[in-house]
Every structure is written in structure tokens, then in C-alpha cells.
Design a protein around this nucleic acid. Sequence first.
RNA 1: GCCCCCGUAGCUCAGCAGGAUAGAGCACCGGAUUCCUAAUCCGGGGGCCGUGCGUUCGAAUCGCGCCGGGGGCACCA
Length: 554
Amino acid sequence: MKETVKNLITDALKRAKNEGVLILESTPDIVIEEPKDEKLGDFATTLAMQLARPEKKNPKLIAEIICGFLNDGVDLISSAEVAGPGFINIKMSGDFFLNGLREAIRLGSGFGQSDIGGKKKVLVEFVSANPTGPLHVGHGRGAAVGHALSCLLKKAGYDVSTEYYINDVGNQMNNLGRSTWMRYKERLGKHAVFPEDGYQGDYIKDIAQEIIDKDGSSHLDKKDEDALTYFRQYSKDSILDGIRNDLKEFRVEFDRWFSEASLDEDDSVNKSIHWLREKGFVYDKDGATWVKTSQFKDDADRVIIKQGGERTYFCSDIAYHKNKVDRGYDLILDLWGADHHGYVPRMQSVLEAMGYSQDVFKVLLVQFVTLKRGGQKVSMSTRSGEFETLADVVAEVGVDATRFFFLMRSSDSHLDFDLDLAKKESPENPVYYIQYAHARVCSVFRTAEEQGVPAPNLDSADLSLLREEEEFALMKKILTYPACIEKSAQSQEIHRIAFYLQELVSIFHSYYKQHRVVTDNRELTLARLLLLDCLRNVIASGLNILGVSAPEKM
RNA sequence: GCCCCCGUAGCUCAGCAGGAUAGAGCACCGGAUUCCUAAUCCGGGGGCCGUGCGUUCGAAUCGCGCCGGGGGCACCA
């Protein structure tokens, strides 16, 4: 839409130049904005102010010249006026919006699809919680944001894949295995020393019980080492199944689950270290092996192999990220919890050392979630195992509300998640406000059908019958949907979609109150239905990006 | 000490590739239903945009300092 306006202005500038009224040595970048106050016009540009210097003219005068050309014989513009210090305010004609609406209707559910992504291959990695316990609310936010962002990027024309990285190697897995093993022994009345840094949660006891139910006490005869191998594997699989299931319930699925262990199978961890060593980025000190990240963005070198010969998490992460880049993605997007922010420079540093472009890897930090109940913070201590799991929250407030609450705030802001509010099936709850609009539109269509009004289409309905102010307000908002998609995708800010939907739907509710859609006037009814059909598409499309359902009835 | 995020209405937050009188929801007060869903709509009050300085014709928006809140600074993951 703005593009069209831009073209009209560019055209006006050309004519001004041809007639010698403006010099225009270089074509300026024309920025189209929407005035805060609608009464001023549909669009505005500060172009004249920008041109003041190069043209050596008063901005107001330049604005007047440009307005002259815009007002002269441009059908789509109804008026162009100078305001204030040199703003150009433009009102568009009804046809301009009706044309836009026709195009939106023609595109149907494809409306909003953009190609700014240029089919660039993007890999979005998110959640990637360690398989040592169930997902908590923090992971939930990451899951919702990651998934919604993937949908958004697809809609914006990127070629998106999603991935979950499973840290199924190392100390924590041993710890997990030992924790379950000890709980198992405890339950069977044997002497057991629970590891000091073991996993405390009740889910460990549940897994131990599962094994008892399945295998009885047969593992007691095993050597410690053999038992551990079994308990480690079993616990990991069990927890991972739980995670997969929680995510599925939360409507989040991944294209690929990438196991850290698989990086050993093809020796790629060692290969990465070797490669870095050959290039001189790796050295040995104090019995450990270090990588020279401080040569790049990091403020210290980092250990990749500990004194005991064990690898750090960072070590395999290097191989994993190299693997991701080598798979040919144009952009690697990682969503991390904000507590990992200190980890960003070292990852960037290693990729830089490896000679990859600095633009290929980007981390989005998702800030913390504070759960509130009755105005009180809900404590979330993982150690004691009394944290709120994602599954608990979903069970309490439902998938739609949970997802929406995670997505309605900028992800780099801390989030206060008010459980009482999210749970309410009442007007204070913003999810229902949007969903209700969709249901309402569907209801109008049911009424129309009952009254024998056929489904409208561009041939049967005459859109020029739409003349109400509120109808144009609705059209205008609908038509900014593609721009909203693009801006959200470019800035990777999913909350913009949530805000857009609330604004869009608010205009609809207001329109609905003032004008009846299904009336005796068949022609007008068809035109209004077609407008609402388009609206319904946009709401459904936006909600779909957020992973929130668009109900036909409420 | 260093690093990241945040500070805007009573509360939760938008706005921040500088622009016209700073917005929304909730809460509060007052109204609206013979008719397609009142989970809705309309109206009202409410703001030194944390603070100081700087850049600019113009700053909530950009830069620096300070204050306040959250988080992070492992041979943990």
C-alpha cells in the first residue's frame, strides 16, 4: 500500500523535475508514514523537509510544489496538503482502498504472504532444553516465540527449518542416570546415596517407579556401571518423550531433533577441534585445552577440554554450530534464555575464527517469565523441584491463552504472566477479544446462510457500495497486514502480530456495533460479507502465526 | 568490577531506522441490547516518557553519565 503511494510521489517528483521546478540531483529515499491523527490524512511524508537543504528552498514551498503535482490528475489521491513545517499529508481516494481490498480478497488466505525473505534458508533452533527434567514455563516462552517466529518468517518468504538440539552427552546425563538409579534402589529398600547435585524432582521418582513396574528388582544384581548405563538411557528417553509430548500439546513441532551424541558418531567434534588447532586458535594450558575466543569478540579464552579430558558443553556446541552453517543455511537463528547471554560472544568468536560471515549467526535472547497468582510471584526453584512446568500452566489456562500471553510482549522484556488473568474467560482476557471477533464474523456468515444469502465473491458483490467511514477504517487496517508481517519478520518481533490483531479486531467490533451486515439490502449485504470474509482471513492468518486457534463459535 | 534486558497512566505494556496534541488493555466512574454473539460498544478522569547532560530546526525515540529493578559473568549445562 505504502509502495503505491511511494510510486505516486516518485512520479510527481519526476514531473516536477521535468518542468524544472525542482532540481533533484539525487532521488531521495521517500519515507511514507501514517499520521497519528487520522483526520490529517491517510499518509504523510517528511520528504519536503529532507529536500530543503539540497534544494536550497523553504520546506513549505517545496511541499507546496509537490502537492501541486500530487493533486493534479492523480486519481488515487483525493487530496495532498501541506501542514506544519512542511509535512505533506495525503488523503487517498475510496478507489485506492477498494482496489487494495479487491486484491486482498483475490489473494484469499495468501494475503499477507511476502517475498522479502527471498527464500533465504533459515534454521531456527529453539527450546533445546536438556533432557534432565520436564519443560518449565521459561522453555514454554521460548517454544512459543520460536515456533511463532518460524511461522512468521515463512509468511515473510523465508525458507524456514526448525530444530531442537538435545544435549544427551556428558556429566549431566551421568548425573541423571545416577539420580534415577538411586531412587530405584531407595524404592526397593536398598541402601542408596543420592548424589549431592542430583536431580531432586519427583519426576525422577516416577521414572524409577516405571522401571520397577517394568523390570522389577532385576537391576539390583547389576554392576553399578552397567546399571548406570541403563538408567541413564532410560531416564533420558523417558524425559525426552515427555518433552516431545508437552511440546506437541503446546502445538510446537520441530523439523529435526538433533542429538549431540550424533556429533561423535561422525567424529565431527574432534574434527572441529583439530581444524581450529591447525589454524592456531587452540592451545593447551594448565592441563586443559583452550580456544582463543578473546582474539575475537569474547573477553576471555574458553576451555573446550577440561583437565580430566572431558569436553565442555561449549566444545560440542562449536561442532554443532559448524554443522549447522555447513548445512547451507543463510541464517542460523538461535533462541536462548536470557541467562545465556554471556555465552553469545564466545559462539560468535568461534564462528568468526572458522571464517564464517558474521551475519550468518544470530542469537535472540528471550527474557524471563515471572508467574503470578493472586498478585503474588510463584516461586520457581529448579533445585527443589517445585518449579511450574509448562504442562501445568497449559493444563491450568489452556494452550491458546498460554501461547498468546507468551507472545503478546516483546520477547526482550521480562514477562509477568498473570495466571488468574490468563485463566479468566472474561473480557479482561485479551486472547478472547481476538478470538471472539473471529467467532462473531463466522456467526454473521451463519446468519447470512440461514437467510439464504449466497457466499459472496468478487463477481457477485459490488464493493463500491462500501461507503461507511468504519468500513474504510477496517479496510485500511486490513491492508496494512502485509506491512505488519514484513516489519515483524525483519525485526524478528513476534509481539507486533499480537498488537496488530488487537487493533484490527477493535475496529471490527466497533463497526459491527454500528452497522448491520445482513440486511434486506441484498447488494449491500454481499459487499459487507465480502469485506468480513477478508477480515476473517486476516484474523485467522494472524492467529495461525501465533499458534492460537481461530474458533468459529465461542 | 564487567556484560545483557528493562524503567512511559494506579497495574501490565505498546510506541524507540528522531517528527505534528505520547497510546492500548486492565482497574476506576458514567452510559448503550425490539435487530447478525454484551466474551461487545460509546464516553470520562488519569502522564516532569527514571534522572542529568549532549547531538538536532525537532528527542519517549540517538549518545554519554547517574539512579532503580531483573539476569549473567565456571575446567556447569
